[in-house]
């Protein structure tokens, strides 16, 4: 039934594309988080049962499976929990200087944020480094309202 393909011009393909877009609302918890972010504030949700804090906040604790109704502002700064250096862009071109992507966690809070780290020498990036956000002047209500993070001054 199967034949070895020898003449590649005989292979037929049909081309197509899928266009369109997706529009995502931020949800009940997300709306609150990003509204607060526009005010340069960070909020976490607090589970009434296990009393853990979650960031980004959510309306349920996935372990206790109960509704989260309490949201609290977090004034402390997060620390670098993990990091990676990017040397190439998405098109495989070498970057002039490496980009630093960090996973940030707050002490005693579940979850965290993935973001960019700047204003730092690569040698100085380390676990536990306390960082502060640099905000965009005019917030739009999305994660890029934080331009980047930098070591706490």
């Amino acid at each position: 039934m199967f034949e070895k393909i020898e003449k590649f011009d005989k292979i037929r393909v049909w081309k197509g594309e899928k266009t369109g877009w997706h529009r995502y609302t931020y949800g009940i918890a997300g709306e609150m988080f990003f509204r607060k972010l526009m005010e340069k504030k960070f909020v976490a949700g607090k589970c009434p049962e296990c009393e853990r804090l979650f960031i980004p906040p959510r309306i349920y604790c996935e372990d206790c499976f109960v509704e989260i109704k309490e949201f609290v502002e977090i004034k402390e700064l997060p620390r670098v929990y993990s990091f990676t250096f990017l040397f190439k862009d998405l098109e495989d071109n070498l970057l002039k200087e490496p980009e630093i992507v960090v996973f940030l966690k707050w002490d005693n809070i579940e979850g965290g944020l993935i973001h960019r780290l700047k204003e730092v020498n690569i040698e100085d990036v380390n676990f536990g480094l306390v960082v502060e956000p640099v905000f965009k002047e005019k917030p739009e209500g999305n994660i890029n309202d934080i331009l980047y993070w930098r070591p706490k001054k």
């Binding site: 292979i11 393909v13 081309k15 197509g16 594309e17 899928k18 877009w21 529009r23 995502y24 609302t25």
Partner: peptide, 24 residues
């Protein structure tokens, strides 16, 4: 309301296979 849009443009090239190649 806050929202975010994500634009997709995926291109495909589907092999027609044995039967449909002959059909075409």
């Amino acid at each position: 309301i806050l929202y975010t849009d994500w634009h997709v443009k995926a291109h495909y090239a589907w092999d027609c296979g044995v039967a449909l190649s002959k059909f075409f």
